[in-house]
């Protein structure tokens, strides 16, 4: 089993936690990642900052700019990932970001360095299945999953295209929009997750706009994973280099709500 598949086979839905690498500086991220794990995150998404994060809302845009203003480089991000892997040998780590920073030195270069750093998966916002050959083969050749995204606009006709070659897990973007802005209606999430799970054996994680323990719990009742990003990034924005403690407390509140939700179901 891979680290990712183990994370989705723990008997409770996985809490997937996102934070932007190098925000507010490259030495701040390690302690925040530790806090996410200690607080109960099952999968870590490490955001690669980009100058033009066109799928992101204000919170993550600001985090990208803070990180780049602090001088974060691709080498720094890979170093953060490698250090995380040494401290947490079993927690899956997914890099999330945009195509240009990932492919700048060539897809093979990126995939090889990511493998060396102990990365398990990659989410690339602007590489749809139609452009998979720009990154997918290089990653898979290095044993890294390229996580596919499904959205409210992914209809029955399109879903097979999305699932073809998908691995790791399926990320359901529950809102047609940008990160952190609105939340989806619970009924629409339930309908979508049921549809996706009928079409794939991959675990389905749901994200975009998830903030409160109650929301996380509601999603945990139907999905295999809950993704939280902007709310964490906002805490980092608010507390800066002292963000680890508030982030840990926040993640604990989500993790316990998710675990309780699934127990109710059992």
């Amino acid at each position: 089993m891979t680290r990712l598949s183990q994370a989705f086979a723990k008997g409770h839905p996985a809490l997937v936690a996102f934070v932007t690498a190098g925000d507010p500086g490259r030495f701040a991220t390690g302690p925040i990642l530790d806090a996410l794990v200690e607080g109960g995150a099952d999968v870590i998404e490490l955001g690669m900052p980009f100058t033009d994060p066109m799928a992101d809302g204000p919170a993550i845009q600001a985090a990208n700019l803070r990180s780049l203003a602090a001088g974060t480089t691709t080498a720094d991000i890979l170093a953060i990932a490698m250090a995380f892997r040494e401290r947490h040998p079993t927690v899956p780590l997914v890099l999330m970001g945009y195509a240009n920073p990932m492919t700048r030195r060539g897809a093979d270069w990126f995939a090889e360095r990511a493998k060396e750093a102990g990365v398990d998966g990659v989410i690339c916002v602007d590489i749809p299945p139609e452009e998979d050959d720009s990154l997918g083969p290089a990653l898979r050749g290095n044993g890294i999953d390229l996580i596919r995204l499904a959205t409210p606009t992914t209809d029955a006709e399109r879903l097979p295209t999305v699932l073809e070659g998908a691995s790791g897990f399926l990320y359901y973007v529950s809102v047609a929009g940008i990160t952190g802005k609105q939340q989806a209606v619970q009924a629409s999430i339930e309908e979508a997750v049921a549809r996706l799970k009928a079409a794939t054996k991959l675990p389905v994680a749901v994200g975009f706009g998830v903030r409160t323990p109650d929301q996380a719990a509601a999603i945990a009742r139907v999905a295999d994973g809950v993704v939280v990003g902007s709310a964490i990034v906002e805490l980092v924005g608010q507390y800066g280099k002292d963000a680890a403690e508030p982030v840990r407390a926040y993640i604990e509140s989500l993790a316990s709500a998710i675990r309780a939700a699934r127990k109710e179901m059992a």
């Binding site: 799928a55 916002v125 602007d126 749809p128 452009e131 596919r148 995204l149 959205t151």
Partner: peptide
């Protein structure tokens, strides 16, 4: 060239 967009936009541009 190509179609390097978020999945949400793919059905639209198709």
């Amino acid at each position: 060239g190509g179609r390097f967009v978020a999945e949400t936009l793919m059905p639209l541009i198709l």
